[in-house]
């Protein structure tokens, strides 16, 4: 193994390798996968001078810590969190020089859920179908990190893109989810549509990388039963028999039989990725093209 690597000292609650996923394989049953907060992933890479598709680490709530085998530039973005190098405070949202043998610790999220750690050269695990993303639905790209794991890193880029400050939208106190009705909006009554557009929903603690689950008033159906399985897009608001919409995130199944009442545009999914359980949700129907 290359000596450019890092050792996982503290894996945290759920830390996975992520990049921009595996588009183009949905017809084989392969989910898109990839970083849930894609803008934060891209930003972390830019800060250390990597191309945006380079693999990063995505943490969940409790962060993670890694010991660098060689001196490496690291940046932490996404959910704001305390960053330390061998216990000394270091900036969040900026490139940080980590000497050989030192431990970079991204602490628990102060707000939001998921932080991203980019390393100069990127995480260089074995790609599967062109991507290093850990897909927790299908198991492609390996498992979540465990303490003691060694992650190979790629060759460092010539120079990080030094930046004084980076614009960053804070994690939401209220999650706004605009959606375009369809393809199965006709499976719901007018009352069901009003419930979605005006009801008080919250992010459920049962949410994960597959979907953001909701708590709130159930949506009234106009038709019972299930559809024959059909293709499911990223951002689908799928409504299972309990009537509570599930927002499909990057590890979502490629086909499904519950009706999709609407689709949330991908640019709004980064906010969903950072919404902690209990966050109020407002769904906003979009009309027109």
């Amino acid at each position: 193994m290359t000596d450019h690597a890092c050792l996982v000292v503290r894996a945290g609650a759920l830390t996975t390798v992520q990049d921009l996923g595996r588009p183009g394989h949905a017809h084989l049953g392969v989910p898109l996968s990839g970083a849930l907060d894609a803008p934060a992933h891209r930003l972390a890479n830019r800060l250390v001078g990597n191309p945006e598709p380079t693999a990063t680490l995505e943490t969940t709530l409790t962060g993670c810590a890694v010991r660098m085998r060689r001196a490496t530039t690291v940046a932490v973005t996404g959910a704001p969190c305390p960053v330390t190098v061998d216990g000394r405070p270091a900036p969040w949202g900026a490139p940080v020089h980590v000497p050989a043998g030192a431990v970079l610790d991204a602490g628990p999220a102060a707000r939001g859920l998921r932080s991203y750690l980019a390393f100069g050269g990127g995480v260089a695990t074995e790609p599967v179908l062109g991507s290093r993303a850990t897909d927790l639905l299908s198991g492609l790209g390996g498992d979540a990190l465990t303490d003691g794991a060694v992650l190979p890193l790629g060759a460092a880029p010539p120079a990080p893109a030094w930046a004084d400050a980076v614009p960053h939208p804070g994690p939401p106190t209220e999650l706004l989810l605009p959606y375009r009705p369809g393809p199965r909006d006709d499976w719901f009554t007018a009352h069901g549509h009003r419930t979605l557009a005006t009801g008080r929903f919250r992010v459920s603690a049962a949410s994960n990388r597959i979907g953001l689950r909701t708590e709130g008033p159930p949506l009234e159906r106009a038709k019972d039963g299930e559809l024959p399985s059909e293709g499911m897009p990223l951002g689908a608001l799928q409504v299972p028999p309990d009537g509570l919409p599930v927002l499909f995130l990057h590890d979502h199944p490629t086909t499904g039989g519950y009706p999709v009442i609407g689709v949330v545009p991908a640019r709004h999914l980064a906010a969903a990725a950072q919404a902690v359980p209990g966050t109020p949700i407002r769904f906003l129907p979009l009309r027109g093209a």
Binding site: S229, E230, G231, P233, T255
Partner: peptide
């Protein structure tokens, strides 16, 4: 298109 996903009675194009 990024995806062509046939299913039981549908084809989804993304």
């Amino acid at each position: 298109v990024t995806e062509i996903v046939p299913a039981a009675r549908t084809v989804f194009l993304d």
